[in-house]
Design a protein around this nucleic acid. Sequence first.
DNA 1: GATAGTCGTTCCACCTACTGGAAGGTCAAT
DNA 2: ATTGACCTTCCAGTAGGTGGAACGACTATC
Lengths: 128, 128
Amino acid sequence: MNIKDASKHTGLPSKTIRYYEDIGLVEPARLANGYRDFSDNDLEKLAFIGRGRALGFSIDECRSLLALYEDRTHTHSEVRSIARAHLKRIDQKIKEMQQMRATLNDLVKRCNNDDRPDCPILLGLAGD
Amino acid sequence: MNIKDASKHTGLPSKTIRYYEDIGLVEPARLANGYRDFSDNDLEKLAFIGRGRALGFSIDECRSLLALYEDRTHTHSEVRSIARAHLKRIDQKIKEMQQMRATLNDLVKRCNNDDRPDCPILLGLAGD
DNA sequence: GATAGTCGTTCCACCTACTGGAAGGTCAAT
DNA sequence: ATTGACCTTCCAGTAGGTGGAACGACTATC
C-alpha cells in the first residue's frame, strides 16, 4: 500500500508518516521504484501510534508502549506506570487550564461590564 | 537594573528575558560596559508578558495586548476579541484533555482489574 | 509519443517558546 | 593577582511536526 492510502487508513498525514519512519517508528518496505510499501503490520503500528498521540502520549512513550505491545512477554506494570504517569500529567494540565480559564473568564466578564477607558483585561495583565 | 535582578523581579529566567529582547518585546538600555539596564517600564512590560504567558496567550498575542495597553486610545473590543478567542481555545483544549483523561482512565482501570497476559491499555491502543 | 495531472521521492528550512552550553569580558572582594 | 559571580554573544537543540523546492514515476488521454 502506498503512502497516500496508508494516510487514509490511519488518519495520519503522509508527511507525518514519513517523519515517523525517519525517527524509526516504522520501517515500511520499498518497491523497485523507491515507493514505500506499507504492510498491514505497518498500518497497525501507525494506528497504534496515532491513538497514543491522540491520548497525549509523547512520541517516546508511544515508542515504549509499542515495544511493550510487540513484546508478547510484556508485563502490565510497565504499561500501567507509563499510563498512570501520563494520567497524572493530564490531571495537572487540566487543573492549570481551569485555573487559567477562571482568571481569564473573570477578566473578560469584568471587561464586558465596564466601559471605562482602561480595559480590565489589560489592567489585569498589567498587575492592577 | 541588571538582568539577574530583572529576572528576580519578574520571575522570568534571564535567558527568557534576553530572548524577549531578541524578538523585540523589550529594548532595555545598555550601560557603558554593554550590560543591559532595565528601567521600571521594561520591568512592567516583562511582567505584563509574563502574566499573559501564564494565562496561555501566545507571544504574538502578548505583543498585541502590550501594544494595546501602551496605546492609550485602545478600544475594549480588540482586547476582548483576543481574550475571547483565547478563552474559546482554552475551553476547547480542556474538553479535549478531559476526553483524553476519561479514555485513558478507563483503560487504566480495566488494566487494574485484569491480569490476563494482554494488557487492556495496549489492546486499547491497538484498537481492540 | 507527447502531455497533463497526480502520485511519489529526498532534503532543507521553518514553526513555538524557549533552554543549554561554549567562549570570553567585567566587576567586587579578598 | 586571583576567585567567583556576574555579564555578553552566538550557536545548537528541544518536540512534533509542516511547507516547499526540485525532481522522478505512473496513468489517462489525445
